[in-house]
Design a binder for these strands. Structure first.
Length: 831
RNA sequence: GCCGAAGUGGCGGAACGGAAUACGCGGUGGUCUCAAAAACCACUGGAGGCGACUCCGUGUGGGUUCGAAUCCCACCUUCGGCACCA
């Protein structure tokens, strides 16, 4: 690592980067990570660090935990040995970042950060308001759930626990034990991302157990399904299939009851027909019937208005939907489930057998077959009949909800929550998607967590005076797959700081994000030797950070962690501000020449050294800025950098190459034009640099240079205005091309150094145009461009425009209804 | 899948709701040279026309507007992040 650091120092220096090297901090040195450990102890003292079991991806063959990127392929195998990866529960350390969720959300309001980073953090924190409600199993075990929709409680027809939920073992009946165990194993092999995909079909197993819905004492089955995550909410949900899409899909699949408890909103009917459910011809039939639809990847989306159109649609669908496929109509109207065959509702009594195979059937009242359907449903007792239809997720008047029936949608949530609190079965609650920061790493390379475990005293923090807990430098990297610290006898075994008895050290190390959460504080006084991590006086002077830059990929992790750290530091009294970085700019990623992220495996890595040594550091720097918008990044181009190199050579020739003195005197006009170009360029370059728009700043400098190269051949050369021009050009180039600028500055006789000169100022009056191009349009189409004085009046502009031959031609035989006039820009004749 | 972005010439990219394609790369032709390279000059979105000019053109389909790359709606595609790469 130290060798690599040395190499990078050299690279950065060769590029002419001006860092304060005396303030460098290296996070892997004990002098630094001593303070990272100090922070851990402080967090621990405040109850912000805790230890809990948590699942990791684990390779049973290598006997090691794996990072997400070490898990490969759809079957999720170990990158090294190909063994299928499983989830394993390990005791791990966490920081309680969720304690600060609300403040992390609010703090975003007061900082000058890109809106998209703020939005990503808001979504990451994922605040949602709702209620916690306690259900009970028939055996009396409390099962807490979180819901954002307490108004749908009466529609909860089953419960779902995450496969990892601790109650699963207790609840499962012997009859279902085997199924549940098998299911849990396969769930442990899925990633969270896969589990949450709404595209994927929902799966689950029944536990054999039942719970009681506290609002209506309904007996509801308890299932286990992987679409419920242990890491969000309580790891258990109440399922309301009538008003939640995921629960709905699950209920359909497993034949669970669906009870609507929110009246459907008025409006249009929406239908989704999966294409694989459609015979060729449905599309054509819809077209023929004049029924509008959108065709997306795998489905037809139909929106219907009015009974007549709905009836037409039903006819078409009946005709063309395949047996054993399904179509749904959600939102306002109805749902059809086609089981093995299309059901003809007109003859429903004759089709009991078919109906039996249907899981759910619900029909809108407007539909003519409703009476038969109702009769048949009741007869078959397939589902409870509520006479109205299913799945919509909007708020609305409550129905089928006991004493709350009739409560309007805008009052429902509050009314139910209040009642839950009165009854003691629930409470208002805010839930966050954000979870606590898991900082344990089963790796060698990180700051050791300063904790020891003693048989007598339990978990004991290492005393401050014993910091740092050093990483041993003689650890053996054996292919055990586990942290080498576990096998380092000297590190592992220690004495208990409390009782002096034998104890063992924590062998997990800290996530590197812990070090990067406070490194900017180290810069004010690296490796400070006081009793806090940095010199408070220097901190007062420098902090907080005025301008921070980093990649967008840090938006939700590093940039959230470091904000959390600062808030904790503030609560400890170490700093007196709330936010670590007042202003943020996110730079993009420079991609390889093929437009892909640079990586060794792709073989598209560009080594800046090669270009620095051939074309020079200035060319490399300038080209990096020219590639594209600074926050978007872009692709490297080996021919593109040649263009920059040519530009630098042109500037060199412009200023250094001799030219014989002109005989004739320059005209005042030409001098004015030159000065105008100079001041216009200073204006745009200044604005662009302040906005981090380096690519367009460079474009302006190139344009200006091209102009000066032409001007050099005219009598304006060697005038005062010429001297002003080239001096300013060099000053503006200095931050982008520091080396050549310094050299040119010296040759122009400027005082050392160009980098300590003030930035050039522009004169608004000198930059103002005297002649402007007036665009003339007829009905919004360009018909002429006229050079007119900048102070042209509307009347003069109209006259000049009407005098143009091409404009006259296009206005011939037309009556001008009105004229749109944009001063200094255009006139548009509307006919 | 969810969250966040982006789609403009052959390519990277410019364009306060008002000249689409600035600047650069690449290409074509020329100057210089015995020749080449470099440098310099000119041209370079498509179609039509001798020309003046005309029509088309900013991922797709709609909309708002005198006027849309820009604003609105729907969709498509690509990229970044998704908590053990940092």
């Amino acid at each position: 690592t130290l060798n690599n650091i040395e190499r990078m120092r050299g690279q950065l220096r060769s590029m002419g980067c001006m860092w304060a090297w005396d303030r460098e901090a290296i996070t892997c040195l004990p002098e630094f990570y001593k303070w990272t450990q100090w922070f851990f102890l402080k967090f621990y003292e405040q109850g912000l660090a805790y230890r809990e079991k948590s699942a990791v991806d684990f390779c049973p063959k290598c006997n090691t935990t794996l990072a997400r990127e070490q898990v490969w392929g759809e079957d999720r195998h170990c990158e090294r040995c190909g063994t299928p990866v499983v989830k394993k529960e390990l005791e791990q350390w966490f920081f309680r970042i969720t304690d600060y969720a609300e403040e992390l959300l609010e703090g975003l309001e007061e900082i000058d950060w890109p809106e998209r980073v703020k939005r990503m953090q808001r979504n990451w924190i994922g605040r949602s308001e709702g209620a916690s409600v306690t259900f009970r199993s028939e055996e009396g075990d409390p099962i807490e759930v979180f819901t954002t929709r307490p108004d749908t409680l009466w529609g909860a027809t089953f419960m779902v626990l995450a496969p990892e939920h601790p109650l699963v073992d207790k609840l499962v009946t012997s009859e279902y034990e085997e199924d549940v165990e098998a299911y849990r194993y396969q769930a442990s092999r899925q990633s969270e991302m896969e589990r949450l995909s709404t595209e994927r079909e929902k799966t689950g197993v029944f536990t054999g157990a039942y719970a009681v819905n506290p609002v209506n004492d309904a007996r509801i089955p308890i299932w286990v399904a992987d679409y419920v995550l242990m890491t969000y909410g309580t790891g258990a949900i109440m399922a309301v299939p009538s008003h939640d899409e995921r629960d709905f899909a699950f209920a359909i699949k497993y034949g669970l009851p669906i009870i609507p408890v929110i009246d459907r909103p008025d409006g249009v009917a929406k239908s989704v027909v999966r294409q694989d459910a459609v015979l060729e011809g449905l599309e054509a039939a819809l077209l023929e019937q004049g029924i509008d639809f959108d065709k997306r990847q795998d489905a037809l989306y139909v929106t219907l208005q009015g009974d007549e159109e709905i009836d037409d649609y039903v006819d078409v669908v009946r005709q063309y939907v395949k047996p054993d496929a399904w179509a749904e109509v959600v939102g306002a109207a109805w749902l059809f489930i086609f089981s093995d065959e299309v059901i003809s509702f007109d003859s429903v009594e004759a089709d009991e057998e078919i109906l039996k195979r249907c899981q759910v059937l619900a029909v809108d009242e407007r539909w003519k077959g409703v009476e038969q359907a109702r009769t048949a449903m009741e007869l078959l007792n397939a589902v409870e009949w509520y006479g109205d239809v299913l799945l919509h997720t909007e708020y609305g008047t409550m129905i089928n909800s006991g004493r709350f029936t009739g409560t309007p949608g805008d009052e429902a949530v509050a009314a139910v929550t209040e009642w839950l609190e009165e009854e003691g079965i629930g409470a208002h609650e805010v839930n966050y998607r954000l979870h606590d920061w898991l900082l344990s790493r089963q790796r060698y390379w990180g700051a050791p967590i300063p904790i020891v475990y003693c048989d007598n005293c339990g978990v004991v923090p290492v005393p401050y005076e014993d910091l740092p807990v050093r990483l041993p430098d003689d650890a053996e990297f054996m292919p055990t797959g586990e942290s080498p610290l576990k096998y380092h006898e000297g590190f592992l075994h220690t004495t208990c700081p409390k009782c002096g008895g034998p104890a063992i050290r924590e062998t997990d190390t800290m996530d590197t994000f812990v070090c990067s959460s406070w490194y900017h504080y180290a810069y004010v006084s690296p490796y400070y030797e006081g009793d806090v991590p940095f010199d408070p006086d220097k901190g007062d002077y420098w902090l907080p950070v005025d301008q921070y830059t980093g990649g967008i990929e840090h938006a939700t992790m590093h940039l959230l962690y470091t904000r959390f750290f600062t808030k904790v530091l503030r609560d400890m009294g170490l700093v007196d501000f709330d936010e670590p970085m007042l202003r943020l700019f996110t730079q993009g990623i420079i991609l390889g020449e093929d437009g892909e992220k640079m990586s060794k495996s792709r073989g598209n890595v560009v080594n800046p050294d090669d270009y620095v040594s051939t074309l020079g550091a200035d060319s490399v720097r300038a080209f990096l800025m020219f590639i594209g918008p600074w926050d978007m990044g872009g692709s490297w181009s080996s021919t593109g950098i040649e263009g920059i190199h040519r530009f630098i050579n042109r500037v060199w020739n412009l200023i250094v190459a001799p030219r014989s003195q002109s005989e004739s005197a320059p005209s005042n006009e030409k001098i004015e034009e030159l000065r105008r170009m100079t001041h216009k360029t200073i204006r745009t370059v200044t604005e662009d640099m302040e906005a981090f728009k380096f690519n367009t700043a460079l474009a302006s400098l190139m344009k200006y240079t091209n102009y000066l190269l032409k001007a050099k051949r005219t009598p304006v050369y060697a005038t005062e205005a010429w001297e002003e021009a080239i001096h300013n050009l060099v000053l503006m180039m200095a931050p982008i091309m520091p080396h050549v600028s310094e050299e040119l500055w010296e040759r122009l006789g400027g005082p050392y150094s160009v980098h300590t000169q003030p930035w050039p100022e522009y004169d608004e009056e000198l930059a103002a145009d005297e002649i402007i191009t007036l665009v003339v349009q007829v009905d919004g189409r360009l018909r002429a461009r006229l050079d007119v004085p900048a102070d042209v009046t509307e009347e003069e502009a109209r006259e000049a425009a009407l005098a143009d031959a091409n404009v006259q031609r296009h206005l011939e035989g037309e009556e001008v209804e009105r004229m749109v006039y944009v001063p200094g820009r255009l006139v548009n004749f509307v006919t």
